[in-house]
Amino acid sequence: MVDKVPMTKGGFAKLQEELRWRQQEERPRIIDAIAEARSHGDLSENAEYHAAKEAQSHNEGRISEVEDYIARAEVIDVSKMSGDTIKFGATVKLVDEDTEEEKTYQIVGDQEADVKQGRISISSPISRAMIGKTVGDSIEVVAPGGSKAYEILDVNWS
């Protein structure tokens, strides 16, 4: 059985765009770079050739990876979700019970996670602690940096 990979519509669109870019723009650019480097003669000591081949290997590997994610994608339309219980796609406002610092996170797929933009992976310790909880609940998150306690202030689906 193939494991589905949950992601938002936006995350799926970004993966599709990355795949298009890698196949239609990056791949031909790398092929041209390899051809140019080959024209310089001896390949055994040609750093440009080896760098281009390495870039090609990296690009083709990422293409395979992105194709796999797209094939296994379970696209979830967050705009059609509602309720008070936290699950994939929810945007959750928390307050750190020690520092009173408020944070807002959206729970997204692993490929979409970007903490700086407030998007955390469904498989992260904080997401796993929040799933199934509601406003007013307290959670304890055991993370590499130590244990932290948060109170859930708000759940929304925007």
Rank of each mutant, 00 (worst) to 15 (best):
156 N>C: 09
155 V>C: 06
2 V>F: 09
150 Y>R: 07
49 Y>D: 02
92 V>P: 01
157 W>M: 06
112 E>A: 08
77 D>E: 13
23 Q>C: 05
88 F>D: 11
141 V>G: 10
71 A>M: 10
149 A>I: 03
26 E>L: 12
87 K>R: 15
1 M>V: 13
78 V>H: 11
77 D>G: 09
153 L>C: 03
63 I>H: 08
6 P>I: 00
62 R>H: 12
116 K>F: 06
134 T>Q: 09
51 A>L: 13
55 A>Q: 12
45 E>S: 13
30 I>T: 06
26 E>W: 05
9 K>T: 06
68 D>V: 04
142 V>Y: 04
119 R>K: 15
16 Q>P: 06
87 K>N: 06
33 A>F: 08
65 E>C: 04
65 E>T: 09
62 R>V: 05
11 G>S: 03
10 G>W: 03
6 P>A: 02
44 S>A: 11
1 M>I: 11
99 T>S: 15
32 D>M: 09
152 I>R: 06
93 K>A: 11
143 A>C: 02
88 F>V: 07
88 F>S: 15
96 D>K: 06
55 A>E: 13
124 S>P: 05
13 A>C: 03
91 T>W: 02
94 L>V: 07
40 H>G: 14
112 E>D: 10
97 E>D: 13
146 G>L: 00
100 E>I: 01
156 N>Y: 14
36 E>A: 14
93 K>D: 01
104 T>N: 09
30 I>C: 04
112 E>R: 13
95 V>S: 03
137 D>G: 06
32 D>V: 09
73 A>P: 09
28 P>D: 03
20 R>P: 07
80 K>D: 10
15 L>I: 03
119 R>I: 01
5 V>I: 15
158 S>E: 15
12 F>E: 02
78 V>D: 10
98 D>L: 07
110 D>V: 07
124 S>R: 08
38 R>M: 08
122 I>G: 12
148 K>F: 07
127 S>K: 04
33 A>V: 02
119 R>W: 10
110 D>G: 14
71 A>G: 13
153 L>I: 07
72 R>D: 01
10 G>F: 05
100 E>Y: 11
56 Q>E: 10
44 S>Q: 12
108 V>W: 04
55 A>P: 01
7 M>L: 10
113 A>H: 04
35 A>D: 12
83 G>S: 04
70 I>V: 04
70 I>M: 04
69 Y>N: 15
32 D>G: 11
133 K>N: 03
5 V>S: 13
12 F>M: 08
6 P>D: 00
9 K>L: 13
105 Y>S: 09
119 R>P: 02
158 S>D: 14
124 S>G: 11
77 D>Y: 08
7 M>Y: 05
119 R>S: 05
151 E>T: 13
12 F>L: 07
128 R>W: 00
19 L>P: 11
47 A>C: 01
140 E>M: 04
84 D>A: 09
125 P>M: 00
144 P>D: 03
39 S>F: 04
14 K>A: 15
112 E>N: 12
100 E>K: 14
141 V>L: 02
76 I>N: 14
